[in-house]
């Protein structure tokens, strides 16, 4: 599924809002919270993680996973939190604008 980079970043940041996850966990979480509707390709997700890390929006640590394996866990930073808010409202505006063009009930997205 082709998403705008900003949208994908937003989803990742949002997913990390509730606690650190490893790369595979993030993919799984996005999939399950969207009721399997968003199947983000790992090939897009992973570079996005690196990009966010580079921008300082998330940070990573090696930790033990639930199966006692070593994995790299990502968590939100303070600036990541702020970025999430900004992206969130941008997204809402965007959905709203599309709704205006598409007429009634273009998608009950919030906003």
């Amino acid at each position: 599924m082709d998403l705008l980079q900003g949208t994908l970043d937003m989803l990742v940041l949002r997913t990390l809002l509730f606690g650190p996850l490893h790369g595979y966990g993030i993919a799984k979480a996005i999939r399950s919270t969207s009721n399997e509707a968003l199947d983000i390709e790992f090939g897009s997700l992973y570079p996005a993680l690196k990009r966010l890390e580079m921008k300082g929006l998330i940070e990573s640590n090696w930790e033990k996973s639930e199966l006692n394996r070593r994995a790299r866990y990502y968590r939100l930073t303070q600036s990541g939190r702020e970025q999430l808010h900004a992206e969130h409202s941008k997204w809402a505006e965007f959905v709203n604008a599309i709704g205006l063009v598409m007429g009634k009930d273009p998608g009950k997205a919030e906003g």
């Binding site: 490893h22 595979y24 090939g43 997700l45 994995a71």
Partner: peptide, 18 residues
């Protein structure tokens, strides 16, 4: 590590991701 957790092939083309 991730490949070991996921189902084979689930993560798609990791070379490309890397």
């Amino acid at each position: 590590a991730l490949a070991a957790m996921a189902e084979p092939g689930e993560l798609g083309n990791l070379t490309l991701a890397a």
